[in-house]
Design a protein around this nucleic acid. Structure first.
Lengths: 117, 117
DNA sequence: AGGTTTATAAACCGAAGGGTTGTATAAAAG
DNA sequence: CTTTTATACAACCCTTCGGTTTATAAACCT
């Protein structure tokens, strides 16, 4: 799984625990223990989640004595957002085209009505 | 996995095959066979992918004789995009705050320089 | 030096993911 | 009414995932 950047990012975002960690990190740096505190799962499980986030490039980790402060990185979020927006737009364009088509057909009907008059 | 809507959406987006299917569907409706055509995997595997996409609400399926045309639905993409944008913004705000802080400190230094003059 | 705190690594487990093949079903076509 | 076409379902295989427990490393505190 997740060879490519985009897959790794979406995979990382697919887990509620990992999303919650990112939400917390949006407020600023935090250590592993701080990040683990709100959850009822083991520290090791959190450590694994952090590794997934790190592999996806969504966080980077510093070193401060025995602490490993985690920092949120937004670059992968940018790519992910871009991908989604692209296909949302395509659909919007389609609807626009459809609207124009409907408009065109309406105009035709109007003309026919006029002819009938 | 993927009890909640957001997790289901990101899980669906995490697979390259499924993303490719969505890209194709952004151009318009397609049948299962049409969607499967570009891939070297079995039709059944595609069928499974479609079920994942359907469960996430990313596609809906109609019925036209023995065909099941798939249509892209953008609502979950909207939610996903919203989620990402929220945390991108928070980070941007943080940087803005940081910029203001740096600016403030610079001003202080200027004042000190003036005092020294 | 010895013990505590912070974090990772390794081995394991059950569940889910992505794939296969084989079989069913439903509608169209002959 | 049999056959083809389009799709779904079920069983199975192997890998990955999310979690656990146990053990280890590294830096701090006396």
């Amino acid at each position: 799984m997740a060879e490519d950047q985009l897959s790794a990012t979406f995979t990382a975002l697919a887990d509620p625990t990992r999303r919650a960690i990112l939400v917390r990190l949006a407020q600023g740096e935090a250590t592993v223990n701080e990040l683990a505190e709100p959850f009822s799962i083991s520290l090791q499980a959190i450590s694994k989640h952090l590794k997934v986030l790190e592999r996806a490039g969504l966080i980077t980790r510093g070193r401060d004595a025995q602490w490993r402060p985690c920092r949120l990185e937004t670059a992968p979020l940018d790519s992910a957002s871009e991908w989604i927006e692209r296909y949302r737009e395509i659909r919007r364009d389609q609807f626009d085209r459809l609207d124009r088509e409907i408009q065109r057909i309406r105009e035709e009907h109007k003309e026919q009505d006029h002819e009938r008059d």
